[in-house]
Write a protein that binds this DNA or RNA. Structure first.
Length: 416
RNA sequence: GCGGGCGUAGCUCAGCCCGGUGAGAGCACCAGGUUGUGGCCCUGGGGGUCGUGGGUUCAAAUCCCAUCGCCCGCCCCA
């Protein structure tokens, strides 16, 4: 046990894990580009106030999970608990909505929440997300969901389900919340302590409760659908139909309300049975009021985010590429090996050479362990003839190869 | 924030209940067996303040307390 450990809930990504991360990042980039989305990067630190405005002062994120601190100048700052608020802030701050009425954006980076760590839940975690600003129409909801589903598919993740719901317009929601407050108010004392609290703050979240004592009431509670106007209903139906038609495994979940306060209309979560308690690996929805609440123009928007660590848990493992294509081993003067490895690198090969002056046997063992297919052995006798030995580790065949022809031989051997 | 399980070598773990016999195994690592050749095998080697701190005791990996971390559930979400 070392004297210093990484901070609780914050993890190193070791070299052996990086190929998986890089593959994931490559898929993010490729699929985003295919959908015409542009990357945006924003700071890890924002004013704490930003999240009170966006995520909502009653959300769990703000109430108990946000890393907040005062900087040396006395400013109240926060490590971002999610990335949407920063993206919206950036767009408004730089007046991007005056330049274009539609923006398709994606982001990728770390976020921070002070929670009790668990599998798939860390204090520093990573999110990939995409946001579409400027369209109030269901087509944009669908585009965002299809983008997410394309990434999931490209990663080889098949065991998942997309849960969909709608929260309607703010007015419809307000009336519904009123109805819920009234309904649950009658049975207040029978509810779980937590739900009693939510009754004041955010009655919608009672629907999300898993306390057994709440279940009978939740089942009888008014449903939002009855409070929706035809426009809202039509919007949701179009989203459902299109997503279903695209072959995505969908399930409408009327209980899905999500923890962020800024959503309107469509909300969704990607869930997988393989994840245990944290079964959601992605989620999002429409947030038509957020841009305006940040002082920007009235611009409708939809977006979603993936939890990168959770995607990694779901991804099938990939075969690993060897770190090098050729290993230069030497018996004798090490400078010769240096010369040969430089020649190979100059020709564009990924080539490594022993740096510990170990025995030839140890060098070959190392090459084998690294999975390198070809070894160039710089031997005394061959060197005097101006050549080296090329050895294939797959079957042990080897031959002498004049130095000027080395690249050509290597190319030939590697292309097989 | 609440409940539970677990921390012994780089990794997976045994030993702990019933305190005392030099702190172990497998894998991994290094070297030799082949004085210029990997994988298999054989031999040898390095590596641990038994998570940390305190207490009980003649004696603690083993018993007690605290603390930190990991894991699982609740909660919440990505």
């Amino acid at each position: 046990m070392s004297q210093f450990q990484a901070v609780r809930g914050m993890h190193d990504v070791l070299p052996e894990q990086l190929p998986q991360w890089q593959r994931l990042e490559a898929v993010f980039r490729a699929v985003s580009a295919r959908f015409g989305y542009e990357e945006i990067r924003t700071p890890v630190v924002e004013y704490a106030q930003l999240y009170l405005r966006s995520v909502g002062p009653d959300s769990d994120i703000v109430r108990k999970e946000m890393y907040q601190f005062t900087d040396r100048g006395g400013e109240q700052l926060a490590l971002r608990p999610e990335l949407t608020a920063g993206v919206v802030r950036a767009l408004v701050q730089h007046g991007l909505f005056h330049r274009r009425s539609l923006w398709r954006l994606w982001y990728y980076g770390p976020a921070f929440r002070y929670e009790r760590p668990q599998k798939g839940r860390y204090r520093q975690f990573h999110q990939y997300g995409a946001e579409c600003f400027g369209s109030p129409y269901p087509e944009s909801d669908v585009e965002i969901i299809l983008l997410a589903a394309a990434i999931v598919q490209e990663l080889g993740i098949t065991a998942y389900e997309l849960q969909l719901n709608t929260l309607g317009t703010p007015e419809e929601r307000r009336r519904y919340q009123q109805a819920l407050r009234e309904f649950f108010g009658h049975v207040r004392s029978a509810l779980s302590a937590e739900s009693q609290q939510r009754l004041e703050r955010n009655p919608l979240r009672i629907l999300d409760s898993k306390h057994p004592e709440d279940q009978p009431f939740i089942e009888q509670a008014p449903v939002l659908w009855d409070y929706l106007g035809t426009a809202s209903r039509e919007h949701f139906e179009r989203v459902c139909d299109a997503v279903q038609a695209a072959g995505i495994p969908v399930r409408v979940n009327q209980r899905l309300v999500r923890g962020l306060d800024y959503y309107t209309h469509t909300v969704f979560e990607f869930v997988s049975p393989q994840l245990g308690a944290q079964n959601a690996f992605g989620g999002g929805g429409r947030y038509d009021m957020l841009v305006e609440s940040f002082g920007g123009p009235s611009v409708p928007a939809v977006g979603f985010a993936f939890g990168v660590e959770r995607l990694l848990l779901l991804m099938p493992p990939q075969p690993v590429e060897p770190v090098a294509q050729i290993y230069v081993a030497v018996a004798g003067e090490v400078e010769r090996a240096q010369q040969v490895v430089m020649q190979l690198r100059a020709a564009g090969y990924r080539a490594v050479v022993d740096l510990q002056r170990r025995s030839l046997k140890a060098q070959l063992r190392e090459a084998h362990r690294l999975g390198v297919p070809v070894v160039a052995i710089v031997g005394q006798a061959e060197w005097e003839r101006g050549s080296v030995v090329l050895r294939l580790l797959s079957d042990g065949t080897q031959w002498e190869c004049p130095l000027p022809e080395l690249s050509a031989h290597v190319r030939h051997v590697l292309s097989r």
